[in-house]
């Protein structure tokens, strides 16, 4: 079986010991990455949760091979903070950071930060702007900007650090980032194909129902996502069974499952190749060239 496996691990509330146990178990089992859901709003079932990015940083050295993908909501977070947090997560984890693009846009979510509710094309534009500025900021230091030249006591070559001068629909950012380029070059960007920004994603997540019609739709949407430019497509499975996974093998590049379904995949995992060292390596994604680097 050639599917990459992702595991959604939100659900342990503020119990970080339980969270760590789930993530280290997933790493030992050979999962490529864990995603960590988040929302500014309480979960509908009345349970509790803590912020996802800080949870991921907490896991960064308790793990060694698995990718860490917190959900950060583009709609309620300052883009510069978001880009810096993810770059720092990539540094802390030595190249295993990913970002699940959140777009919580309900009136209640927008009210937590006093922002207007965005819908339709305004929301799509905002999400696209936040992804674009994050990607530019991650490239704002060229890989060889850090020269560590002891003879001249120079840490970096300022000609290789760039302003981004980004102007979006609702914000502007000059840059550069305060943080050197992430080890992966670009943090792996994951998002639902329904966000309308598929061309900007490294992994498009396509949700599906476990029915014949659902599978037909999945195949169609997967083809669309690939045509839009998503490097990889993962099926997002609220519940899974072994026959469904076998069916998906060859249709999509990976699946995201929930903790309850881990027993279903343990046999399938035995054939997975060893991961790493970076998440991009595990997923077979190339390390992107820097958009600001000048040849020569």
């Amino acid at each position: 079986m050639s599917l990459h496996l992702a595991l959604e691990v939100d659900g342990d509330g503020a119990d970080v010991a339980a969270l760590t146990a789930h993530v280290t178990a997933a790493e030992a089992a050979g999962f490529a990455l864990v995603t960590i859901a988040d929302s500014p709003l309480p979960p509908a079932d009345g349970s509790v949760r803590i912020e996802a990015g800080v949870r991921a940083a907490y896991l960064s050295r308790r793990t060694t091979r698995i990718g860490l993908a917190p959900t950060l909501h583009a709609s309620v977070t300052e883009p510069f903070h978001l880009a810096t947090q993810l770059a720092s997560l990539d540094h802390a984890s030595l190249g295993r950071a990913a970002w699940v693009v959140g777009a919580e846009s309900s009136a209640a979510a927008a009210a937590t930060v006093g922002e207007p509710v965005l819908t339709g094309s305004d929301l799509r534009r905002e999400i696209a702007d936040v992804i674009d500025v994050a990607r530019q900021l991650w490239d704002s230091w060229e890989d060889d900007a850090v020269i560590r030249d002891r003879a001249t006591s120079r840490f970096l070559d300022p000609d290789r650090v760039h302003h981004v001068n980004f102007t979006g629909a609702r914000f502007t950012v000059s840059g550069p980032l305060i943080t050197p380029r992430p080890p992966q070059g670009q943090v792996v960007v994951i998002g639902a194909d329904t966000l309308g920004v598929t061309s900007r994603l490294d992994i498009a997540l396509v949700d599906t129902a476990d029915t014949a019609a659902g599978l037909g739709e999945l195949t169609e949407r997967t083809a669309l996502a690939r045509a839009d430019g998503a490097a990889l497509v993962f099926a997002d499975l609220p519940s899974a069974d072994a026959s469904l996974l076998r069916h998906l093998d060859g249709v999509v590049d990976g699946v995201r499952i929930r903790v309850a379904d881990i027993p279903l995949v343990t046999d399938l995992l035995k054939t997975r190749p060893p991961a790493g060292p970076t998440l991009r390596d595990t997923l077979g994604l190339p390390r992107p060239a820097n958009q600001f680097a000048v040849a020569g």
Binding site: Y58, H81, T84, A87, A92, S140, F155, L156, P158, I178
Partner: peptide, 19 residues
Amino acid sequence: VFGAQGTIGAQEPLMFVAA
């Protein structure tokens, strides 16, 4: 801001102390 207090690069403080 890049360049403030030296130019050795800095990490986002909350992620850094969480690590």
